[in-house]
Amino acid sequence: MRKDLLLVAVIVLIGVILFKGTKIQSVEEYYLTHIDDITPESETIKISIRVDAVLEHLDKLPESLRSEKYIPKDGIILEETEYVLRPGDTVFDVLLRATRHHKIPFDYQGSEENRFGSVYIKGINHLYEYDCGPLSGWMYTVNGEFPDEGVSKYKLEDGDVIAIQYTCDLGRDLGHPYDEKEVNP
């Protein structure tokens, strides 16, 4: 009788394991596969990629780009997505992660290849600098502010909200007080 009970217990246990699908992983594997899992304790940031400013200037774009595939009607390339903030993450690290995970083409110039010593965003989702006129290109804000650093230099903090945005007017169409700065530094 006792043996029966034991047998039932073993069967139930196996059943539960099967049903719950518990993974058997090494610590390293666990770390790798769960690195971007958001838990109540994890520090996070949010990132979005938008091209709203282009919507009003579709006529300026090269013919080949005037398609929903590149310029979605709602202006959203990547809607606001939450990511785990890893230690030392810069805006570039998170942007790279987000574009890779979502298979969004992202072309950039490494900090070694230019004279600014920071990564330079050339194109996202096939939309490149200058595609919307001589003053167009990619800019970014963190918590609504236009930071004073290159993407690979800006270190993020818990709760930061990053918006990667395309401008057709050196940021003025994104609310960047460009001219004021020039006049009244």
Partner: peptide, 18 residues
């Protein structure tokens, strides 16, 4: 980001083991 490859490997290994 070679880390992505390592992660993919871990994902697949875990899945296979599972």
């Amino acid at each position: 980001n070679y880390e992505d490859v390592e992660r993919a490997k871990a994902e697949i290994d875990s899945k296979a083991r599972k």
